[in-house]
C-alpha cells in the first residue's frame, strides 16, 4: 500500500520532536545507568575515571549470582508454564461458549487489578493452610498466577483481530483440529504469545512482594536480595548487573526478532 507523500516534508516536524522526547524519556535513564556502571567512584556525583571495578565486584559476589539464578529460574519456569496455559485459556475463551463464561473471563483477569500485596498474602495463607512448605516452587506457582493473566490478555486481543475463517478453512481442507491449531492459529498468535511472555518475564523478574511472601528454603530472588541489602548499603555493582541484564535481554530480543524475520522471508518465498 502506498500513501501519496505529502508535499515536501519539513525537515523538523513536531512528530520528530515528540518521538525524540519519548525515546529520550525511556532510554536516557538507562544510558546514565550504563555510563555510571563504569565509574570508578562510588557516587554518581563525581566521575572518577573509567573502571571495571563494579563488574569485578559483581563477579566476586556469589550471593548476587545465586539470587540472579533463582530469579531466572523462577521467571523462565513461570513464563513457560503460563505461555502454554495462557494461550490455551485465551483460545478456549474465544472459541467456545459455556455457562459462566463471562464470570470465568472476569475472574481470570483479576490478578491484573488486584494489588500485589493482596495476592502475596492470600497466596501465603493458602499455601500454609494446605500444608505446603515454602520453597522456590511456591514462588513459581505464585508467579504463574499473574503471568498467566498477562499472557492471556495479550493473546486475547490478538485473537479478536484474527480472521476466524482461516481455521475453519484449514478444517475444510482436511486438517485435523490439532493440525489446524498448530499450523494455522498458533503461527498467527506467535507474536502475541511472545510479547505476552516478555511482559510476564519482566514482571516476574521485578516482583518483590509476592516472592518475599512465598519464598522459603533458601530461595532468594534478585529483588529480595537487593532490597534486603538497602539496609546496609547497595553498591553500584547493581548498576553493573543491570547493564549486563539489559544487554543479555536485548540480545535475546534481537535474536528472536531475527529468527522471526528469517522465517517470514522463507514463508514469502514459498
Amino acid at each position: 500500500m502506498n500513501i501519496a507523500p505529502s508535499a515536501a516534508k519539513p525537515s523538523f516536524s513536531w512528530q520528530f520532536v515528540v518521538t525524540l522526547l519519548m525515546y529520550g524519556f525511556m532510554y536516557i535513564p538507562i544510558l546514565i545507568l550504563a555510563f555510571y556502571s563504569f565509574n570508578a567512584e562510588r557516587f554518581s556525583a563525581n566521575w572518577g575515571g573509567f573502571s571495571l571495578r563494579w563488574y569485578v565486584s559483581l563477579l566476586n559476589d556469589s550471593r548476587i549470582q545465586s539470587a540472579l539464578l533463582d530469579s531466572l529460574r523462577v521467571a523462565f519456569t513461570a513464563v513457560a508454564v503460563s505461555a502454554v496455559l495462557g494461550t490455551m485459556m485465551a483460545v478456549g475463551l474465544a472459541k467456545y461458549r459455556f455457562p459462566g463464561k463471562g464470570l470465568y473471563r472476569g475472574i481470570s483477569y483479576l490478578p491484573l487489578i488486584i494489588p500485589d500485596i493482596a495476592i502475596a498474602v492470600a497466596t501465603l495463607v493458602f499455601l500454609v493452610s494446605i500444608g505446603l512448605s515454602l520453597n522456590i516452587w511456591t514462588i513459581i506457582a505464585a508467579h504463574i498466577v499473574f503471568c498467566l493473566a498477562y499472557i492471556a490478555v495479550v493473546v486475547s486481543t490478538r485473537l479478536t483481530g484474527l480472521n476466524p475463517h482461516l481455521e475453519e478453512a484449514a478444517l475444510d481442507l482436511g486438517a485435523t483440529p490439532l493440525q489446524a491449531f498448530m499450523k494455522v492459529l498458533l503461527p498467527e498468535l506467535m507474536p502475541a504469545i511472545f510479547s505476552g511472555c516478555l511482559l510476564a518475564f519482566v514482571l516476574s523478574m521485578d516482583d518483590l512482594l509476592i516472592a518475599s511472601f512465598t519464598a522459603g528454603d533458601g530461595a532468594n530472588t534478585l529483588p529480595m536480595e537487593i532490597f534486603s541489602r538497602v539496609k546496609t548499603g547497595v553498591k553500584p555493582d547493581i548498576n553493573a548487573l543491570s547493564v549486563i541484564l539489559i544487554l543479555v535481554s536485548g540480545f535475546l530480543a534481537f535474536l528472536s526478532e531475527y529468527i522471526r524475520f528469517r522465517s517470514e522471508r522463507r514463508r514469502f518465498r514459498q
Partner: peptide, 22 residues
C-alpha cells in the same frame, strides 16, 4: 539455610501468615 527479608513488616506479615514455620 538463610532466607532474607527487606523489612520488619514483611517478616512479621509472613510469620503471622504462617509462612515462617521452617
Amino acid at each position: 539455610v538463610v532466607d532474607t527479608f527487606d523489612s520488619n513488616e514483611t517478616m512479621l506479615t509472613k510469620m503471622q501468615g504462617g509462612g515462617g514455620k521452617a
